[in-house]
Each structure stands twice: as C-alpha cells, then as structure tokens.
Design a protein around this nucleic acid. Structure first.
Lengths: 359, 359
DNA sequence: GTGAAAGCGCTAACAG
DNA sequence: CTGTTAGCGCTTTCAC
C-alpha cells in the first residue's frame, strides 16, 4: 500500500495559517519559525541555527541574544523540517507482537535505554494490534519516518525476511534466520529446550508433553527439536500426542491446551511450555481439571518473566537475558546505522535454567 | 493480552503497491525522489503527486503511466517532506508508565484500533523507562513529530497539567483533573473503591487494609477516599496502620507490603489493592508468611487484567472497561485534532465488580 | 488535465 | 564570527 489512506479527518484539518507571533508560548498550531526568532534577536537564521545546534563559533553575546529570543518566544524547533534537511529522524521503532506479553517489556526497556543513550527516541508498535497487516510498520522505515527498527514479532520477521526487506536498517530479535544477512540477537533455543527437558528427565519424568507455539516460527521449530532430541537421547520415543501447537501465547490458550492434554488415556506427567504465559495458563488449566502442580504434573516454562516467581507454585523456567537481548539489539542497529555497509554479526546470548517449585 | 497473530500469510499482502525492488535496487539510503519518478513517467512532479494522493483530475492513461513508474522504481513517498509541507504527521503518541503492566495493553489496543481506523499510526512510549524525564515525550508534540498524544501515566499527566501544556493536543486517560480543561476519560474511582470495600464489608470483614499507590496521584486519592468513606459509613473507624502507600505497582511491591501489613498485632482480615498486579503480589506475599487466601485474608484487586482469572485463587476485582477507555481516549483526541477550538468533554465510563474466589 | 514555480522550516556551504 | 543562499522532497496554487 502506499497512498489512499482513508484520510478520515477530511479537509477539516485546516492548516491554520496562523497569526503573527505574539511574544508568548501561545503556539496555536501554526508554530514559530526560526526566521521570527532571528528577527527578534536581530541576527540571521543561520546564527540562530548555530546556537540551536550548539556550534562553537558564535560570540557569547550573540548566543545570549538568541537564547533570550528563543526563551521569550517559546520557540521549538520544527523537527519535521530539520529531519527533512538532515535526512534522519532520530527515531527507532520496536515492533512487538503483543505489548501485553510481559516477556517483551524488559527487552523493550533494554532497547530504550541504549537508544536514549545515543540520542534516539524509541517508539513501540504493537504488530498484533494490526491483524490485517495492511499497513506494515516497515513502511515507516521505507518512508523515512524512522531511522531504524528492531523487530520482536516472529510473524513480522518471517514476512520481512521473505520480502526483499533485508536492505532496510533493521535487526531481528529472538526470532532470526542466520542465513539472511539480517543482524540478529537471540538465544540458543535448541539447547535451551533441551535443558528444560533434561531437567524434567532428571526428576524422573518420562511422559513429557510439549506445548509449543506455531511451528512456522523458527524458534518454535528449534525448541521442538531440542525437546525431541533430548527425549530420544534419553531413550524415549516421543509420542506425537504429547505435543500441541498453539497460535497464541495467551494464558487461556495454555489453559485449554493443558486441559486437552490431560484428557488422554496416558497423559503426560510433565509439561514443557515454550513461554511463561503459556505455562501459567497450563497451571491454571491443570488445576481446573483437578491436577496439582507439581505433584500430579510438573510444569516448566520459558522466559522467566517477573510473574513467574509470584504464582503458586513458583514456576521453574528457562530464563532469557531479556534486558541484554534488548540492549544488544539496539547496539546492533546503531552499528548498522552508523555504517550501513559494515557486516553486523548475529549474536547468541546465554540462557539459564531457573528451578523453582513447579518442576 | 490478546491473541498474538497466527502466522501471516506471507507476502500476499497489499494488492496495491507491492513492488519488486529488484527492478531498481538502488536504495543507497538516498531514496528515490518524486522527481525521478516523474522523469521516468514523462510527466511533471505535480502530476505524480496528484496520482499519489488520489486526486481525481488526472487522465487514466497518465495515472497508469505514473503508477507503472512508481511500481518499477520501488518508490516510496518521503513522509518527512510531505509532513513538512502539510504540517501534519499522522502520528499519535501514547505514553504509558510501564509497558510491562498488562493493564495498559488492552487500553493501548483500543487506542490503536481507532487511530488506525482514522488513518493514523499510533506509537507507544514507555515513560517509566525514562526516570530522569529530561526528554519529555511531550516534546515530540511540541516539535511536531506527532500530531497528538494520549497520556496514561499519572506522573506525566500531573506534570503536564502543571505546566502550560494544556494548549497541546493531548488527552488524559485514567488519571485526570476536570478542572484543567484537558480532555479526559476514566472511571469513577471513588465509587469503584467504595464498591470494592462494600463487598468486603458484606462478606463480614471489618479490618480492611488498603494497599494504594502514591497519593500524589489523583486516582489514588479518590480511591483512598472511597475506601475511607465506605468504612466510615459502615460505622468503622479507619485505622491508619491498615493503609500503605507504594510508589510502584510491581508484584514485588505488593508482596512485601502485604507481608509488612501482616506483621501488625491486629492485622487486617482483608486487603484491597488498587491494582491487580499489586493484588497478585499481595497474594504471593500473604502466602509467603503462611496466610491463606481467602480463608485467612481476603483480597480484592482493581483493573481485571486477564491474568486475574488465571491465578490461584482467581482474583475478585474491580473491572475497568479498558478497551473502551482506549477507544474513547482516541476519539476525544481525534475530535480535538479535527477542531482545536471545540470544547472536548471529559467522560467517565462504568466499572464493575467481578467476584471470583479471592474475596 | 497538466506543468511551472513557490515555498513548508531548517541546515550547511560559501562568502565576507 | 555572521549573513546569504541554496536546496532537502513534497504539495499546491495558478497558468496554460
């Protein structure tokens, strides 16, 4: 898509070619321009611009005059104009599939903190809020409203990898494909899943269920493989009826999946869910069919969101270094921005098994 | 949270302007300009612009020529330039204090959906990620990088109400002050808190604790007053030792506050927490000091996030109409944008007591 | 129906 | 040190 935006607010958005500047911060929508400040200060626009941008070569007296005029008028630079001129927006986009999933919050913080450190604003987009996908947030990049993007949404990442979007300044986080040349950061999902399963194995479980997300996603396939191989290595033949694939990470999805799993004649004695939100749902679902955790069924989650320690029983889970994931993603992006041609690497961060009471 | 997207049908996306950039992969970060498209199509820039913006007065043949050129070149409009010219960005900002708090997620979705419906992009800012507050997101407004904003962060709202920011195109959500003239949407916090307390009263409790957030916030004061008055009306003299004020809504904050509350000689038999996240922490904290919910201590929360139904025991809480809150906020903002002078009202939405097992 | 040209507000040469 | 000037890429009169 391109144009033909609904423009629902019609011409009514009357541009308000506003009045001459009163000596007050009363900017109705018209906005002061640098020229007016220049006039008021009795200097040229160039000088005002220099002062505004902190250039050195301005006589202190002049600088003060300008600053005074700026202050008096309540002038604010129009970044639209500045950005057009400098061809950069100093805005970074972060796309998450669901802002409601706490897993992303900490990652987002990591991104935000390094973005801010480098003079960028980070803005968040909830890709899940746009099921239609008619308006890709990548368009914000193509249309230069943002300088770069970090994508945390596996669906969007897959789609972007499919298109020829790899030339765009973006970085994949958590879901990635080393083959594509798009920089990424994530963890070793295969090993992490294996670790989870091996923990269950060590606890004596042999019927271990897997509640996974959509295997269209790379991370889901990797975790599934880790699960499968760990089982096999333990001499157990995985039973397909122990596996479920969900297209949601919501609590409810986990709850109903668990209930379903338990209906089977030879139901699992342990469940590995690929996300803490799912796992929390699983525990709820188990309880709703009269199973106790971990006595009847053990549960292992994935992510280690802060909630994991709060629920009853506290959740055993695979911790991802969320903050670092975000920080690294941001750094990679900044690197790519600074040097568009440089080869930005993919990086894998360590995970960790956190043992609590659910398994 | 809501269902995350099922995998996106790859690339079948926009039937309109999907363009194989292969034809002209020259994306040297410089970007194609409308002039080049014009040249390639053998028309003037004005005509290209007309086509791009769906103006009627263009001969079909010409239009097709232009569209072909656009497609072939993979051209994307530079919105920086467009926005400078039209003096609008079609971007809406939403400020939340903590993207990790699920309460905001659904509100954000409401905002996003109506924003999108009206041809706006909504971008999220986590104000909590910027404790220093040196770089106010309101500056994005002042500097015209966004057309309008919705603020959900009580701290930011208070600060903005204090400054002369009321001239800026923004709307307050959940935290608000009718006196300031800034449009707002929220609920009747006083009555809602009263309802929660009256429920506890009806269950026979007389020692009812309050775990509140910072009373610097209006909503916190309103809820406190509701709590106080409900107690008084029942003939109970509120005991100050039953009240705690926290500067965080995190689980951990709720947990330690609850533990602290229980240390008292004559500890409450019920606790009203002003947020579900707090309440969940409270339950955890109670459990950690050996108290069972609701048998030993009853707990009621506030918000009704989706998690509330999942935990053990399921949480009794005051439900806020989150989706509607968001939708309404967006509509108010759009209204204000369409007519900067119009008097945009404040609106109060209904809340609801949801009785589950924790109280 | 289409084109030429005038800016939107700002920064960055280039002169002085 | 400071001013003049030329655009950044786009939309939009105003002519033709």
């Amino acid at each position: 898509m391109s144009k033909s935006l609904p423009k629902a607010a019609p011409a009514s958005s009357s541009p308000t070619r506003r009045s001459p500047p009163e000596a007050q911060p009363s900017h109705p929508a018209g906005g002061l321009s640098i020229a007016q400040v220049a006039e008021q200060a009795g200097v040229s626009v160039a000088t005002v611009s220099r002062v505004l941008n902190g250039h050195e070569n301005v006589r202190p007296a002049t600088r003060d005059k300008v600053l005074a005029a700026v202050d008096a008028s309540g002038y604010r630079v129009n970044e639209l104009a500045r950005n057009l001129r400098t061809a950069e927006s100093r805005l970074l986009l972060t796309m998450v599939p669901d802002v409601g999933n706490p897993f992303y919050a900490e990652i987002v913080r990591g991104i935000d903190s390094v973005a801010r450190q480098h003079g960028y604003f980070m803005l968040l987009c909830d890709t899940g809020a746009d099921p239609g996908r008619e308006r890709s947030y990548f368009d914000l990049l193509r249309r230069r409203r943002a300088d770069g993007a970090i994508c945390l949404d596996p669906a969007t990442i897959q789609q972007a990898l499919g298109e020829a979007s790899s030339a765009l300044p973006w970085v994949a986080c958590c879901e990635f494909d080393p083959a594509t040349g798009v920089p990424y950061v994530g963890i070793d999902n295969y090993r992490a899943a294996g670790d989870a399963v091996r923990h269950l194995l060590a606890r004596g479980h042999r019927r271990i269920g897997l509640i996974n997300s959509d295997v269209d996603y790379l991370y889901a396939r990797q975790r599934q493989q880790g699960y499968l191989d760990a089982l096999t290595e333990a001499g157990i033949t995985p039973d397909e009826r122990w596996r479920m694939n969900l297209n949601s990470l919501d609590y409810e999805a986990g709850a109903s999946a668990a209930a379903l799993l338990m209906q089977q004649p030879h139901a699992p004695s342990a469940i590995f869910a690929v996300s803490d939100t799912l796992a929390i749902g699983v525990i709820h679902g188990l309880r709703s069919v009269g199973k106790r955790v971990p006595d009847d069924v053990a549960v292992v989650g994935f992510d280690d969101i802060s909630l994991a320690a709060q629920i009853d029983p506290p959740l055993t889970t695979i911790a991802q270094p969320m903050r670092e994931l975000g920080e690294t993603a941001a750094r990679l992006l900044l690197q790519r921005l600074a040097n568009p041609l440089a080869n930005v690497p993919g990086v894998l961060l360590p995970h960790r098994l956190v043992i609590r009471r659910s398994a």
